[in-house]
């Protein structure tokens, strides 16, 4: 059981670290992270069911996820912040509609069973313990990748764009492209995490990639603190444990799902009211409303 929990934490930690790159460091509010997760999961599952090696599938999942990120980023990144939020939401819902309705490919609501487990250097990864190690390795790699990125001049530029994109552009930073790259990096990680998930559970259906899932990942990031990779992982640890723990209360599944949802929403609201920076948050009060995009005094 504990191995299962840690494996899930590895997967959700990866998702949170990727999303933190987008929301925490670049200041773009995404409501579609589950879509990239799902794209990765389906890509990897379908490829491996068609006979491709599992790790190739996961890589392809990451790439497809990143392509989805490019699509959303390209169409919304130059617009107001809330538009990005809605663009990602719309993308997420369309993706889910595709998972549900393209029955020829995805088997729709029936889902894809029998997704193979990976094998490494000819050794099949069968037990949960082994898979847990794999998930932790992936998480560590993602964390190293994200930390490297945000500590580099690229990460510093991301933060400057989050603080004031007009000023960043005035210095010669290609704001649009940088935002898209950040979104793509985040969705790549989500895509790989999707592959990791699919080959762990060995069964996926569209219900795993809903808006609720996107919100859950968002709560992990906000809870741990925007703009802090370790915070994201901490959020994943605490909330995955809470979520899985709820399953043991013996409530009917419909009630426990709703209860879960209520708990997250209360956490989210409470956190915003009491500690908007999250538990380990970097972002302080950025009062940057509508004025962010307006140059002073329209007329003059």
């Amino acid at each position: 059981m504990i191995y299962h929990l840690v494996t899930l934490i590895g997967i959700y930690g990866m998702l949170a670290v990727g999303l933190n790159l987008v929301v925490g460091y670049t200041g773009l509010f995404s409501l579609g992270h589950a879509a990239f997760f799902g794209l990765g999961a389906y890509t990897s599952a379908l490829l491996s069911l068609a006979g491709a090696p599992v790790f190739t599938g996961m890589l392809a999942g990451g790439i497809i996820g990143a392509l989805g990120g490019w699509l959303v980023g390209y169409s919304t990144v130059n617009l107001r912040g809330d538009y990005f939020c809605l663009g990602t939401l719309a993308f997420g819902e369309i993706t889910r509609a595709v998972f549900t309705n393209w029955i020829g490919l995805t088997r729709g609501p029936m889902g894809l069973p029998g997704i193979p487990r990976p094998s490494l250097f000819g050794v099949p990864i069968k037990s949960v313990e082994q898979y847990m190690v794999l998930a932790l390795i992936f998480l560590a790699l993602s964390l190293a990748f994200a930390e490297r990125l945000v500590k580099s001049p690229f990460g510093r530029m991301l933060r400057s764009i989050r603080e004031d994109d007009v000023a960043a552009a005035s210095l010669g930073k290609n704001v649009g492209r940088t935002k898209i790259v950040a979104v793509m990096a985040g969705s790549f990680m989500a895509g790989v995490a999707g592959g990791l998930y699919a080959h762990y559970i060995t069964y996926i259906d569209p219900m795993g990639f809903t808006l609720n899932q996107s919100i859950f990942i968002l709560v992990l990031v906000v809870f741990g603190g925007l703009g802090n990779n370790y915070g994201s992982i901490m959020g994943a640890v605490i909330l995955v444990v809470v979520r899985e723990g709820l399953r043991f209360l013996g409530l009917p599944s419909s009630v426990s799902a709703a209860l879960q949802q209520a708990i997250y929403s209360v956490l989210l609201i409470g956190l915003m009211l009491v500690r908007p920076r999250g538990l380990l948050g970097e972002v302080k009060y950025m009062t940057r409303g509508d004025s962010s995009r307006s140059l002073e005094g329209g007329g003059e």
């Binding site: 510093r156 400057s160 603080e163 004031d164 007009v166 000023a167 970097e282 950025m286 140059l295 002073e296």
Partner: peptide, 10 residues
């Protein structure tokens, strides 16, 4: 800019 735009949290 007329109203300064430094990066406040840096």
């Amino acid at each position: 800019f007329q109203q300064t735009r430094v990066f406040p949290e840096m």
